[in-house]
Design a protein around this nucleic acid. Structure first.
Lengths: 296, 296
DNA sequence: GGCCGCACATGACAAATTTCGATGCAACCA
DNA sequence: TGGTTGCATCGAAATTTGTCATGTGCGGCC
């Protein structure tokens, strides 16, 4: 067993492995990688062969990865992180300046933080100031020139061509199965706070349909709303990624909710090379994985 | 310029890059990599093409690497470190036990420390106890069963088949050009301390040739000896890697010094799987680079 | 200056690897 | 039970990678 270290991991194979985890399957991973399913399947097989151990658990109803697979996954992400940073550092031009960036609380725990961290390391001469707030607030600041760019949620039909689409979301009316909605009573509404931009939409639209709404709960965090829904407190407008299996999706008697999107929107300002570079990096990550990963 | 991150660095290409630095040239790097010179040249060219920037400085009399090349080199070493650790972690069997390892002070600042560190991370259940000492002392401890293995220097003709050869060295008689050696006076000898195993050889052999030796300086560190040589204090037996350009190598009137080698020698003990795994990792690194890197 | 030798680059071609599309196979769902 | 989904596998095609032979530039040496 001479020369374990002569074995080599292919960067693209590691990328495939992480894509499989992110997308939850080989077929979907192949899509975002821009490859055929068989190519990805083969790649993993080769990786396994070169390591001499299984990475995917191919038995029915088994978790995707074997223990070795999970171990490698963690290491692969670190390797890929270093790798990407190396690639970027070689194609970087020395940037300097300031970036005032806004983002919603939702997105702080996504890939964006990673990209932002890497950007700071690569461009220490650029000062990045990040401001977290609600989408509406951020858009106001953007318009007032207080931000150079912001990551905000909006109706999908409001997205402009120059916006960078991060990912799409669908809104649903949800309630607990335990909750009855008598037709002659106002609908108890669980809402994000005053500045939530689709709260207004919900109330207006529902009233057009002839239902009366009563806001019975207000909370700025999604966690609070989901808890209230599950407790049977009322009806809420929730985006798909916050849905739980126990929730009941309502379609009857309520208008179909509009689609949403998260985008990066720039301020109408003279061009800022540092900002453009940061946005290009975000776009790069998206083109690699189809959309940014949002942890459940 | 869409998709900078779609660029990818090949692990083998990074390996080639570091080999070029270690070996100080493409041709030599090709040798240790087991490839033809043109293959390595091609590889670097492909790497450059995929990155869109030069890595090697091909002008005459220029340092090997461009700025970008040096930047990538540093990153490459980190990536390769993670990579190798990942490979090893997947092929490891859970080891436990104790290893008592001896090494000389010389070798503490080589690749061995890196391998040792990685081994500890990979096998936290193995307790590695390292003891630094002179080669003779370590061999005595080895014989007495106080060590499981030791990295020691010895005459090359004393190397046994079961030893793992780390690298070879040549000894030379050296002195400062300023120092005269009148034939009728004893030769002033600069020596490592009492336990240096070739000090005895030097004195005996030289006396056989009819020269009288007088030890005028004794010091356990190579740095001390080289300083004394350069100061013109006397003659010393130095291994090639401590030679300085200002030193004069003596051949006349002195016996040709024996060749030396650094090896890993095991104790005559029952097999210890943890120890064998560690030694296998060292052997792996050697087979990759021809010999361990010894910083000048 | 002209003639080596050395180190690296380059081009053509051969070998190996990687991909794709088609097809097979098993599990799951209605 | 027939449709669907997700992955493995197979042969052919495409791409990548390596080797051999040869070219180029530089420096040392009569």
């Amino acid at each position: 067993m001479a020369g374990i270290l002569s074995r080599r991991l292919d960067i693209d194979a590691l990328r495939a492995l992480t894509a499989i985890e992110d997308q939850g399957g080989v077929t979907r991973a192949a899509e975002v990688l821009g490859l055929s399913q068989s190519a990805v399947s083969h790649r993993i097989r080769r990786l396994e062969a070169s390591l001499g151990c299984d990475l995917l658990d191919r038995r029915a109803n088994a978790p995707l990865f074997t223990g070795a697979g999970r171990d490698l996954l963690a290491r692969a992400r670190r390797i890929l992180g270093l790798h990407d940073e190396a690639v970027l550092s070689l194609s970087k031009s020395p940037l300097q300046g300031r970036i005032a960036l806004g983002m919603t609380e939702d997105t702080t725990c996504t890939d964006l933080s990673r990209i932002l961290g890497r950007f700071r390391r690569l461009h220490p001469e650029v000062s990045v100031r990040t401001r977290v707030g609600m989408s509406l607030t951020l858009q106001t600041m953007l318009a007032a020139g207080a931000l150079d760019a912001a990551i905000v949620q909006m109706f999908r039909h409001d997205v402009r061509p120059q916006d960078l689409l991060l990912f799409r979301e669908e809104l649903h009316w949800v309630k607990s199965p335990d909750l009855d909605l008598p037709a002659d009573r106002p609908v108890p509404f669980l809402s994000f706070d005053e500045n939530c931009f689709y709260r207004r939409w919900g109330i207006d639209m529902a009233q057009d349909e002839g239902r009366l709404f009563e806001t019975v709960f207000e909370c700025s965090s999604a966690a609070g709303i989901t808890a209230a829904v599950q407790a049977g407190l009322g009806v809420a407008l929730l985006s798909s990624r916050y849905l739980k299996p126990e929730m009941e999706i309502l379609t009857a008697n309520l208008p179909a909710p509009p689609d949403l999107a998260y985008v990066v929107r720039r301020a109408k300002k003279p061009r800022n090379p540092a900002l453009e570079s940061l946005i290009a990096q975000i776009a790069d990550e998206i083109s690699r994985s189809g959309q940014l990963q949002i942890p459940a």
